[in-house]
Computed example of a mutant assay.
Amino acid sequence: MAGCASSLARIDTWEGQLPAEVKPAVLQAPGAIQVVSVNGRSMTNFLVEDLALDYGLQPGANEVVFSYKTIWAKTGVVRDGESKVHVIDSGRQVARFEARPDTVYRFDFEKPESRRAAEAMSENFSARIVAADGTAVATSEAWDGQSRLVSERTPLPASEAGTASSAGETAGTALDRLKSVWVEASDEEKKAFLRWAFE
């Protein structure tokens, strides 16, 4: 049974304002894909499932955690208190890819014709993220709960995004830059920094 999917406005996956010159990418998710988080930021759960949604992504590295979920009507008699549907869920998956500015991406996966096919597919589910021209940029894998992005990617305000520092720079600007660099640092670099900071 396929539910009716409706499309809503784009959901941005970052906090704050992007600089005017930065053009976000868009990831289109059909109703069967439920995006759980993007770059460590939890996405809103809607009261109605099976919504086709567009997610705004910052250009650069993105980590999208999602699950594949379909609902199939039960045939035959349903006892009191028993669900009238079969819910098939892949479990959480993760896809990591570099998003290009002003580019549209979408999920690509097999569309099962029956509940049995959906059950079989859910056991080894995998989806591809593809660009508008059909080029695959990522293939999902089972989510182990370990994010490669330690904190949310928060854009720098345009006035603070310059690379040169000055003697009169405010603490807020320095803090924003530290946050920005922290997100891009490797685990080893973060450990080395923390050792230095607390020695």
Results as ranks from 00 to 15, higher is better:
166 S>D: 01
133 D>M: 01
36 V>A: 14
48 V>P: 00
115 R>T: 01
68 Y>T: 11
119 E>N: 03
163 T>A: 11
37 S>G: 06
150 V>A: 14
85 V>H: 10
67 S>Y: 10
50 D>W: 13
102 D>K: 10
40 G>R: 02
110 E>V: 10
125 F>D: 00
99 A>F: 09
125 F>S: 00
64 V>F: 07
116 R>T: 13
46 F>L: 15
55 Y>T: 07
49 E>F: 11
74 K>C: 08
36 V>Q: 13
158 A>Q: 15
86 H>Q: 11
121 M>V: 02
155 P>L: 03
162 G>H: 12
94 V>I: 08
79 R>L: 15
70 T>Y: 05
130 V>P: 06
169 E>A: 13
98 E>G: 00
112 P>I: 15
166 S>L: 12
87 V>Y: 10
154 T>L: 11
127 A>E: 07
97 F>K: 07
69 K>E: 03
113 E>V: 09
82 E>H: 04
136 A>Y: 06
49 E>P: 03
152 E>L: 04
114 S>A: 10
161 A>I: 04
100 R>W: 03
115 R>A: 13
48 V>N: 11
87 V>H: 10
69 K>H: 05
91 G>Q: 07
143 W>N: 08
135 T>W: 12
85 V>W: 11
142 A>H: 06
85 V>R: 08
81 G>S: 06
66 F>P: 05
159 S>R: 12
58 Q>F: 11
96 R>M: 11
103 T>E: 12
137 V>D: 02
166 S>Q: 09
40 G>Q: 05
67 S>G: 00
84 K>H: 06
73 A>E: 07
43 M>R: 01
52 A>C: 07
159 S>Q: 13
162 G>Q: 09
76 G>C: 08
138 A>E: 02
111 K>C: 08
89 D>C: 03
66 F>W: 01
108 D>R: 15
65 V>W: 02
154 T>N: 08
57 L>A: 10
151 S>P: 01
42 S>K: 15
125 F>Y: 11
109 F>W: 12
127 A>Y: 01
157 P>A: 05
40 G>M: 02
70 T>E: 14
118 A>F: 10
125 F>I: 01
120 A>E: 14
147 S>G: 13
55 Y>S: 14
110 E>K: 04
66 F>E: 09
70 T>P: 02
124 N>Y: 14
121 M>P: 00
140 S>G: 08
124 N>H: 15
145 G>N: 09
154 T>K: 13
102 D>H: 06
44 T>L: 03
103 T>F: 08
151 S>A: 00
57 L>R: 14
147 S>N: 13
114 S>F: 07
81 G>L: 01
51 L>P: 06
120 A>W: 00
98 E>F: 05
106 R>I: 00
124 N>V: 03
45 N>P: 04
38 V>Y: 03
128 R>I: 03
106 R>T: 04
146 Q>D: 07
161 A>R: 11
83 S>L: 09
37 S>E: 13
154 T>V: 14
157 P>L: 04
96 R>H: 09
43 M>K: 01
122 S>R: 04
129 I>Q: 02
139 T>R: 05
60 G>L: 14
134 G>M: 11
109 F>K: 05
47 L>A: 14
101 P>V: 08
99 A>W: 05
133 D>Y: 05
74 K>Y: 03
119 E>S: 00
52 A>F: 07
39 N>E: 02
48 V>A: 15
